[in-house]
């Protein structure tokens, strides 16, 4: 009985030192305080190793931009964007934010609109309240979803992308763009029809 009681005690808090600001500037620092690999779906575990992870005792309020796959098992309030990558909301994850990504997998809870460029996968225990825009949707039976679904056909997306690129012909031929192409560096700013477009470095 006593041994059992000891096992039930909460795990000691991780007391790792606060990372230096220079460390925070680096990409891909895993923010994990848990053994999340065990709690995620088997098909997602291979992604975890190469993903940034927000652990289950982490709370973030603000905007998250990610250029790598992201696993959220904590709480996020604000917005989450990983346009070219995959976002997995783990079983402990609670996201009160708009989510934009190439692919979204939901085991936990999302309250907010979701734009998944390619696919959204809502698993059995998931709870999603918000509107979805995606090309493909997978909902396991038992998942809770409240909101509208806008299925976007790949052709429509291509047309939209083509229309968007057609509106920027001047940018491609502008001196700044030509200089950037020659040097391989992005231009600081360029123009399209006389309207300045800031290009973030």
């Amino acid at each position: 009985m006593w041994n059992r009681r000891k096992e039930e005690e909460p795990a000691p808090r991780i007391t790792s030192p606060v990372p230096a600001p220079s460390d925070l500037g680096r990409e891909g620092i895993p923010m994990s305080t848990m053994s999340h690999r065990e709690s995620l779906h088997a098909t997602d575990t291979h992604r975890v190793a190469s993903s940034a992870v927000i652990g289950k005792s982490v709370v973030i309020k603000g905007q998250i931009y990610s250029r790598e796959d992201l696993v959220i098992d904590g709480e996020v309030e604000g917005s989450v964007e990983a346009h070219e990558n995959k976002i997995v909301v783990g079983p402990n994850g609670k996201v009160s934010a708009g989510v934009k990504a190439r692919e979204v997998v939901v085991h936990g809870a999302i309250k907010g609109n979701v734009e998944a460029g390619e696919k959204i996968d809502i698993r059995r225990e998931a709870k999603l309240v918000g509107d979805i825009k995606t090309q493909r949707i997978v909902i396991e039976d038992g998942a809770y979803f409240k909101g509208s679904v806008d299925i976007q056909r790949p052709d429509a997306q291509k047309q939209a992308a083509a229309a968007a690129s057609a509106t920027r012909p001047a940018a491609a031929t502008s001196p700044a763009a030509a200089a950037a192409a020659a040097t391989g560096a992005p231009p600081a700013s360029t123009t399209s029809g006389g309207i300045p477009i800031e290009v973030k470095k």
């Binding site: 949707i137 997978v138 909902i139 998942a143 809770y144 979803f145 679904v149 299925i151």
Partner: peptide
């Protein structure tokens, strides 16, 4: 139903 892939499709 509150989340049927078949119905959405």
């Amino acid at each position: 139903t509150g989340g049927s892939q078949a119905n959405i499709q």
